[in-house]
Design a binder for these strands. Sequence first.
DNA 1: AATAAGTAGTTCATTTATGTACTAAATATT
DNA 2: AATATTTAGTACATAAATGAACTACTTATT
Lengths: 168, 168
Amino acid sequence: MSSFDATENRINRTCERAPGFPREAAMLVRLVKALAGGVHGAANVALREYGLNHTDYNVLMMLYGSDNGVITPSELRDAAAEKSANITRVCNSLCERGWIQRVPDRHDRRKVMLSLTAAGEALIGRFLPTMGQLLERYTQDFSGDDMASLERLLKRLLANVDSVEQSP
Amino acid sequence: MSSFDATENRINRTCERAPGFPREAAMLVRLVKALAGGVHGAANVALREYGLNHTDYNVLMMLYGSDNGVITPSELRDAAAEKSANITRVCNSLCERGWIQRVPDRHDRRKVMLSLTAAGEALIGRFLPTMGQLLERYTQDFSGDDMASLERLLKRLLANVDSVEQSP
DNA sequence: AATAAGTAGTTCATTTATGTACTAAATATT
DNA sequence: AATATTTAGTACATAAATGAACTACTTATT
């Protein structure tokens, strides 16, 4: 008896009432939503002691994984899968708290270079072990093949969703 | 070249900088977030003409798929994967617009029975074909096996995420 | 060189979502 | 029966996210 049964039952009944409604796609979309919410919530709980939320964490980690530790707000928007207005807001907050810094780009004055401060690097050093362990629990019982095929299928699904966003 | 490459590259670099960081789990979590955002955004665009957003749609559809067309706020919270405070807010809005109604439960006076009005049923009848087509595009090129194994893997992942929420 | 078109980033108003605290009612315990 | 505990739902304050409009700058076109 999973937390998802309540949803699955209702999708099944929907398909009875509305023949032709795509059961599988609906299931996948709801599973993705439930997962995103669950992961988001669990990360928020784990990160609270560091004064961070899951979005802050994502942004910091994308900076951490960038070449030379530098990224622009637009790149960050793509890498963190956030809207640009949200990137501005989150970066304001991270700047105010001294974890990242904004430096104008000399060559293209429209651009801004975001980078971690020493304090930001230190912060990441502190929460990274905890967050790594949390992530590992999610795939505890997965084989390498399980993870690889899940990744592959999700990428295909994402490509289809992206293509809808291109031509709605 | 996918929209996800910006993320994947940075996860890879993170694993170089922090050996032991679980690449696969991080990839899966980010894919799920990107998917949830993409699906949410595309649904919002498609539903705008009906005066609805994706959350409204989810709530209405869970009602549509419920036995006797009745559901309580708590059941709805689980079925729609929303927080209860959000369920209250969304239902207030749907009530005000005349698509659902609240009726107190005679047997347990703590409970509230939510149900669709005739106007709500009619609304669903109007957007359902469009939304079904949108969903179908997501799994266009998926075989039955693809969908089944993706569903199975996502359910396992969700079970693990849920178990973390039980014992953080 | 002047103008048009496109890009990067932010601001602002509004919507959406969350945590916490609270009320009321049901159930369990004594 | 009285009291404690649990459950259902909501209210409220706050946080997070979004769409749309706007500024500043760069690149393309004439």
